Simulated assay, not measured.
Amino acid sequence: MSRPTASAVVELAYSPRENALFVSAPDWQDESRSRLLRLAPDSLDIQAEVPLDGKGFGVALDDAANRLYLTQGFNGAISVIDTQGNQIVKRIPVMQKVNFEQLYQEHELSQTRRDFLLEQLKKWNVVDDFPYKLRELAIDADQHRLFAPGLGLGIDSVLFVIDTETLELEKILPGFGYNAVGIVTDPTRHRIFVSNMQGQIITLDSRTLEITGTLEVEADQLLNLVYDPATNRLFGVDQGIDRDEWRNNHLEREYAHRSPGHRVFVLDADSGKTLAVMPTDEVPIGLNLDTQRNRLYVTNRGGVRPDSAQGSVTIYDTEAYQPLQTLPLPPHPNSLALDAAGNILYVTVKNDGDSAKAGKPEHVVRIQF
């Protein structure tokens, strides 16, 4: 089943407790029309709309607490939603706008780096803006904390830590390298894993908030991660997008590629050792792990902003490390949510260039296995 849903849909979360599907629906033309949508999981009908004051992006669900957290990726804040009342509880600002030229001077960037960055920002007509972009979120309910990587715009990334009892910013942790994006928790061992775009996974103790290690891995661009606690394995998608110019500028050296990309990497969570590599279709982005059935679901965008795309979802056996099936889902399948009890997969499908120009809505898809 495929249902046109909004002008844009990004991430989604399934709530067994509420028997509902929550989807972030930013409006790129008029952010005042951005919403969080509550969908009926069987019909995908819209049951409720939560207005947002900024474009929503990543979501993380704390079902036991009836809360959904949502990054306002370009607005320097995280919103907290009551999933029973379908309303915003609080908007948590985590940063202020800065002047980028002043920021780069304060960080003592070299003149070469500053010249490159400021020239790029001029192309986007950006002088003053938020210094970090927010994408993904991870909850550690035992520690009453929410973690959100902040992707630094020309500066090293950080990790924002939110106290989920007070709903206040607790701390900003530095030291996460170039473009920290992926994050996943290991509540049993009190670990947080954060991946960046320079081939690293950084491990954090969720109790002390101390960085305990940095794993150099064979994947260059682990955009998103999932963790299997039973086997202590990390699964991550290595995108394969050309980021050389920006990355080399950030590192002030030529980055040596470790992978051709367009892969799923399976890693030992302690050592970072590669256990398996599984090829994907072009530009994998989202992944979801079904530990009950030993299945991994991966969305493949099918290109980087092409006019016409033929994206897909690939299903892997996580014991044999083999693809089982690839489902065409054009144009751009993006994010995933799983109803494990019902064996149902939900996918957001974004527009390619032609669909966007035609003003078509983006879709949510329900796949019953």
Rank of each mutant, 00 (worst) to 15 (best):
S2W: 10
T5H: 02
T5L: 13
S7R: 14
E11T: 06
S15Y: 02
W28K: 09
Q29P: 01
D30Y: 10
D42C: 02
A48D: 12
F57N: 11
G58A: 05
D63G: 03
A65Q: 13
G73R: 06
N75P: 01
G76M: 05
Q84T: 11
R91S: 14
I92Y: 03
M95K: 02
E101Q: 14
R114Y: 06
K123R: 15
W124T: 12
N125M: 12
N125H: 15
D128M: 07
D129W: 15
D129T: 07
Y132S: 02
R135K: 12
D142W: 09
D142A: 14
H144C: 08
H144T: 06
H144Y: 12
G154F: 07
D156N: 13
L159M: 15
L159P: 00
L173H: 02
P174I: 08
P174Y: 08
F176T: 01
V184W: 07
V184D: 10
T185F: 06
P187T: 09
R191P: 08
I192N: 00
F193I: 08
F193Q: 04
F193P: 00
V194T: 09
I201T: 05
L204P: 00
L204M: 12
L209R: 02
G213F: 10
T214N: 11
D220I: 10
L222S: 08
P229E: 11
T231K: 13
T231E: 15
N232G: 11
R233L: 15
L234N: 01
I241R: 14
D242N: 13
D244A: 14
R253W: 08
R253K: 15
H262Q: 14
V264P: 02
L267I: 08
D270Q: 12
T291M: 13
R293V: 03
T299G: 03
N300R: 05
T314S: 15
P328F: 13
P330T: 01
P333H: 02
P333V: 02
N334H: 14
N334E: 14
L336Q: 04
N343S: 13
L345S: 01
V347M: 05
V349R: 09
N351V: 05
D354I: 10
D354M: 13
S355A: 15
P361H: 10
I367T: 07
F369K: 10
